[in-house]
Design a binder for these strands. Sequence first.
DNA 1: CGATCGCTTGAGCTATCTCAACCGGCGTGG
DNA 2: CCACGCCGGTTGAGATAGCTCAAGCGATCG
Lengths: 243, 243
Amino acid sequence: MVTDCQNCPLRSRAIFAPMTDAEVAFMQSFKTGELEVEGGATLMMEASNSPQLYTALRGMGLRYKTLLSGERQVINFVMPGDFIGLQAGVMQEMQHSVEATTDMKLCVFDRKRLWALFRDHPDRAYDLTWIAAVEEHLLGESLAILGHMSGIERIARAFVRLFDRGAAIGLTRGADMPLPYRQQDLADALGLSVVHVNKMLKRLREQGAATWQNGRLTLHDRDRLCDIAQLDRDRTPMTRPLI
Amino acid sequence: MVTDCQNCPLRSRAIFAPMTDAEVAFMQSFKTGELEVEGGATLMMEASNSPQLYTALRGMGLRYKTLLSGERQVINFVMPGDFIGLQAGVMQEMQHSVEATTDMKLCVFDRKRLWALFRDHPDRAYDLTWIAAVEEHLLGESLAILGHMSGIERIARAFVRLFDRGAAIGLTRGADMPLPYRQQDLADALGLSVVHVNKMLKRLREQGAATWQNGRLTLHDRDRLCDIAQLDRDRTPMTRPLI
DNA sequence: CGATCGCTTGAGCTATCTCAACCGGCGTGG
DNA sequence: CCACGCCGGTTGAGATAGCTCAAGCGATCG
């Protein structure tokens, strides 16, 4: 139980130093429970019926909005360690949900205790803000992707990004990692049609750059992929603290 | 001086109640100065050379990223009351700047004192996180716009959004408000070419929905605009607190 | 065995892009 | 005071990336 909580992003500062016993104890008290959901299940995050905050502990999912037209915009892919629900508190008009793609285990926090966290643990509160700022930065990057990149470029970038995230949490094995989503999910994230995603995937495969089949992503030629994605080949990951 | 600071978004809670003298005094101490920039000037927000946080007090600008290709993605339009710079702290690889479109006055905070804010004023820290969460929500919405909407829909939505923001800070006069940007700026925000933006503006004009000329935006038919933008005609603005 | 789901592929169609030209206003320098 | 250059806006023409519609295929499941 405690070990699970060690994955909590609220210890971002602890990337460099383990949590003290007191800190672990506090996280335990902030935590109100664990939630196991089956693959395919949907967590509604509308503010009204979900005053919870979550940390993903196991499994993968995706966070999305449902538009009035019924279409879906995937905001991001949820991997272990991700913190979910902060932004849900400020929205009301737009559907905002999390779908568990695989079975997932989530750590549940009570939003009402958030204030106590700010009062009693400014360092954790600080981390929380840092998380929100990182998230905002990543969304800004996504915006630039949708605004300016072609289909194949978007997919290449998504693959490099997802792979790097996977590597950061130990999901990769060599050039390979699990990526249990559907092509439709990627399409909804990148603002493309499934058909087009499919055709671009084929092209990436034929170019020997990357393969995504049977729920596994393999980067055969990361450098080429980075070139397509207009990314530095060896950029540093996003782990720098706010101050 | 003090009156200026009353515009600071760190008093979001004070939307409902004025700041106390003690609070004003604290904001004064957190504040390190004011910055006046001329229209056309650019504030570089790279983490390395800008450890500052800003609040826009007067004038308008835009926050954008510069991509490797040299293109520009406008992240948002900066209006009085906006808080800038939180997300700049976590990025390193991508250019991230603020351009003053008109002359602007900014309130400058020292990032190093942010920690003191969290330690000594958990309520303000809380507001800060709320701001970040709102920002994140808005970016998510922008993402959905770029991902799923046509040119004319994007523009209609941008107009309604900008107008509502303008109304919230008292910039509107009837159906009219100042909007001193170039068509290129809107194009870069919406992921369209200037040429296309121009043609869609013409169409909106001919439809009698909205006019944007000589730096002023006029919504002739807000309802029609909302329909095009796939927005509820009378949605409530985003002022709900986090808890 | 049939139904469903996700993936794949083909065939038009069109929204949007790029290229290019032109126009008016404004600031600058001679 | 005029001439020029520049910037932002406007419009047209042709090219194309990506969309929609549609069909087929294999795997999985009840």
